Amino acid sequence: MKNLIIVLGAIVLIYFAATLIIPPYIESQRNPVKSPPPYTVSIEAQAMYHRLDFISDLHCDALLWGRNLTERGSRGQVDFPRMREANVALEMFTIVSKSPAGQNMKINTEDAFDNITPLTIAKGEYPANWFSLINRTLSQSEKLADFIQEEEGKAIFVRNKADFQRLIEARKADKSIIGGMLGIEGAHALEGKIENLDRAFEAGVRMIGLTHFFDNELGGSAHGQSQAGLTAFGKEVVNKMNEKGIFIDLAHCSPAIVDDVLAMTDKPVIVSHTGVRGVLDSPRNLSDVHIQKIAKNGGIIGIAFFDEAVGVPELPNIIASIKHVRDLVGIEYVALGSDYDGAVAVPFDITGFPLLVEGMMNQGFNETEIQAVMGENIKRFFLQNLN
């Protein structure tokens, strides 16, 4: 019995040590910043950046990695202190619950080994989360709520229009107040149960991407096997999302799902993080036809920052992607959708946002257009469409 206790104690100590070592190592490998801070831009670009009233981003997966977002991190790409340094008003924190081994832009299978399972175990999460996608989702939701509560009024969990208006008003007096919204990357997190949509809504989720890297119960992924449109369950989920006021995110969806959703809803949609085929021809990216349909729907398109969405070098291609949407349908439909902390290498972390302003200035964007892209479009979109 004594030896058994010693062995069990050693196992517990090893597991505890692993929770301190393994998740930070994995994140440092999966979320590199190609050019670490600090960043410098021209005096003119910095002055324009300081004049921006509302800066926002539509996609960040920082909740996945187990980092304390209230503390400035030495790894990763976003946390609350870095948001404040960059004067970012609002971040959409998105929940990843499953990711296939060998993840790629062309074809992935639903039954591939799940990369998130060992990470969930290594983070020391409750065993109830180890093999449950909805439990993982609700756990990450609780984490955001906890981080915001720790901020003691310096951060606002945006669940509705009143919360969003409160954020805007609060920042008039104190720019250190930040906001967080909650999204889900891939509705496989619902585990095929419509009642889990209610649970996600109660947890604060206000945006859901219908698919991620593989086909699920709602339909086909842009990177899946079937390329199918919405299933009957997918249509049920879309209708209920509209009823509850949860935004539909079309990032990663098959072209058939994009068509199906836009044919059945008059609620404006979001594409939280994407590139455009006019800059990089990839199954990951939006065609001109879909950009036009999304604009007609009143939706908004977030341009991602990583090479497989925009190409290399990233910064000029991010600007080219923004310009492509502007020239095709108008500046009011384009925004930032970084995919920060989404297991991607990015050219700069969130404190590098002034580089985007300088890049747009160099390409002839005027100040009103730059304000729109950097956050005014998102502010208008949520003021018009949040319940």
Rank of each mutant, 00 (worst) to 15 (best):
residue 156 I to T: 01
residue 171 R to W: 00
residue 163 D to A: 02
residue 161 K to T: 09
residue 148 I to K: 03
residue 168 I to K: 08
residue 165 Q to N: 15
residue 191 E to G: 12
residue 206 R to D: 01
residue 159 R to T: 01
residue 206 R to N: 03
residue 177 I to N: 03
residue 154 K to H: 10
residue 185 E to K: 09
residue 185 E to F: 11
residue 161 K to S: 10
residue 173 A to H: 15
residue 167 L to E: 02
residue 180 G to T: 02
residue 191 E to K: 09
residue 180 G to M: 07
residue 152 E to C: 15
residue 165 Q to L: 13
residue 182 L to D: 01
residue 196 N to W: 05
residue 178 I to D: 12
residue 160 N to I: 04
residue 155 A to T: 01
residue 201 F to L: 13
residue 154 K to L: 08
residue 149 Q to L: 14
residue 198 D to F: 14
residue 203 A to P: 00
residue 162 A to H: 14
residue 189 A to K: 14
residue 197 L to F: 04
residue 167 L to T: 02
residue 164 F to C: 03
residue 158 V to L: 06
residue 202 E to R: 15
residue 177 I to F: 03
residue 202 E to V: 15
residue 174 D to L: 05
residue 180 G to C: 05
residue 166 R to H: 11
residue 184 I to N: 04
residue 161 K to N: 11
residue 189 A to R: 15
residue 148 I to H: 02
residue 166 R to A: 15
residue 168 I to M: 09
residue 163 D to R: 03
residue 151 E to P: 14
residue 173 A to G: 10
residue 156 I to M: 03
residue 148 I to L: 04
residue 157 F to V: 08
residue 182 L to G: 01
residue 193 K to N: 12
residue 206 R to Y: 04
residue 181 M to A: 05
residue 207 M to F: 10
residue 187 A to S: 13
residue 160 N to G: 02
residue 174 D to R: 06
residue 192 G to E: 06
residue 173 A to S: 14
residue 161 K to C: 13
residue 149 Q to P: 02
residue 188 H to C: 13
residue 206 R to I: 05
residue 190 L to C: 07
residue 197 L to W: 03
residue 195 E to L: 10
residue 175 K to P: 12
residue 164 F to V: 03
residue 190 L to T: 09
residue 170 A to L: 02
residue 205 V to L: 09
residue 159 R to H: 01
residue 158 V to W: 00
residue 152 E to R: 13
residue 155 A to P: 00
residue 206 R to W: 03
residue 198 D to N: 12
residue 163 D to W: 01
residue 151 E to K: 09
residue 194 I to A: 10
residue 200 A to E: 10
residue 150 E to F: 13
residue 156 I to G: 00
residue 159 R to D: 01
residue 201 F to E: 11
residue 188 H to K: 13
residue 159 R to V: 01
residue 203 A to T: 00
residue 198 D to G: 12
residue 158 V to P: 00
residue 149 Q to C: 13
residue 199 R to W: 11
residue 199 R to F: 11
residue 205 V to T: 06
residue 176 S to G: 09
residue 154 K to I: 07
residue 187 A to V: 08
residue 166 R to C: 12
residue 197 L to Q: 04
residue 205 V to W: 08
residue 156 I to P: 00
residue 183 G to M: 07
residue 196 N to R: 11
residue 197 L to Y: 02
residue 191 E to Q: 07
residue 194 I to T: 10
residue 157 F to E: 04
residue 151 E to A: 10
residue 158 V to D: 03
residue 170 A to E: 05
residue 157 F to C: 07
residue 169 E to P: 11
residue 187 A to L: 13
residue 193 K to T: 14
